[in-house]
Computed example of a mutant assay.
Amino acid sequence: MKVIQSAYNSLSDKKNIQPDVEYYYGSDKINLFDQTGSILIGFFVFFFVFIIGGISFLQERTQGTL
């Protein structure tokens, strides 16, 4: 980024340069939930599997079958 900024500052005609932005993933209209949604889904799946597994072990322990 510093190299690009220094090259841009060294040019004399700065008004005619328009950067061409190309997105490999997503677009310029992506918001915060779109960026963090998949992470939150993974977190909730891990959390609920942990809770369900803990409850199952607790039931096995209280029933004496563990």
Rank of each mutant, 00 (worst) to 15 (best):
Tyr25Val: 13
Asp20Arg: 08
Glu22Ala: 14
Phe43Leu: 08
Phe44His: 08
Phe43Lys: 05
Phe43Met: 06
Leu32Gly: 01
Tyr25Glu: 12
Val21Arg: 06
Ser38Thr: 15
Tyr25Cys: 09
Gln35Leu: 15
Tyr24Leu: 14
Asp28Ser: 10
Val45Leu: 11
Val21His: 06
Gly42Val: 04
Ile41Asp: 10
Gly26Tyr: 01
Leu32Lys: 03
Thr36Tyr: 07
Gly26Thr: 10
Asn16Pro: 00
Ser38Cys: 08
Ile39Gln: 13
Leu32Trp: 10
Tyr25Pro: 00
Ile39Cys: 05
Gly26Phe: 03
Ile17Ala: 06
Tyr25Phe: 12
Pro19Trp: 05
Phe43Ala: 05
Leu32Asp: 07
Ile39Lys: 14
Lys29Glu: 07
Leu32Arg: 00
Asp20Ile: 10
Ile17Ser: 03
Pro19Asp: 02
Asn31Trp: 05
Asp34Thr: 07
Phe33Asn: 10
Gln35His: 12
Ser27Gly: 15
Asp28Arg: 01
Phe43Arg: 00
Pro19Thr: 03
Asn31Gln: 12
Ile30Trp: 06
Ser38Glu: 14
Gly37Val: 11
Gly37Trp: 11
Gln35Asn: 12
Gln18Leu: 14
Leu40Gln: 00
Gln18Met: 12
Asp28Pro: 04
Gln18Cys: 07
Gln18Phe: 14
Lys29Gln: 07
Gly26Val: 01
Val21Met: 04
Asp28His: 05
Ile39Val: 14
Gln18Lys: 15
Asn31Gly: 13
Phe46Glu: 03
Tyr23Leu: 01
Gln35Arg: 14
Tyr24Lys: 15
Asp20Met: 11
Glu22Trp: 11
Val21Pro: 01
Asn16Gly: 13
Ile30Gly: 05
Glu22Asp: 12
Leu32Asn: 02
Val45Ser: 08
Asn31Val: 12
Thr36Cys: 03
Phe43His: 05
Gly42Arg: 04
Phe44Trp: 08
Ile30Pro: 01
Gly42Phe: 11
Gly37Tyr: 13
Gly26Cys: 09
Val21Lys: 04
Thr36Glu: 08
Ser27Ile: 05
Tyr23Ala: 00
Val21Leu: 08
Ser27Leu: 09
Phe33Lys: 01
Tyr23Val: 02
Gln35Asp: 11
Asn16Asp: 13
Phe33Gln: 05
Val45Pro: 00
Tyr24Met: 13
Asn31Asp: 14
Phe44Val: 02
Val21Ser: 04
Leu32Tyr: 06
Phe33Ser: 10
Gly37Asn: 14
Leu32Ile: 10
Phe44Gln: 08
Ile17Leu: 06
Val21Glu: 02
Tyr25His: 13
Lys29Leu: 02
Ser38Phe: 14
Gly26His: 02
Phe46Asp: 03
Pro19Cys: 07
Val45Lys: 07
Pro19Tyr: 04
Glu22Arg: 15
Tyr25Asn: 12
Asn31Ser: 04
Ile17Glu: 03
Asp20Val: 12
Asn31His: 11
Leu32Ala: 09
Leu32Pro: 05
Gly42Asn: 14
Asn31Leu: 08
Asp34Ser: 15
Asp20Cys: 10
Val45Trp: 02
Ser27Arg: 00
Pro19Glu: 08
Asn16Met: 13
Phe43Pro: 03
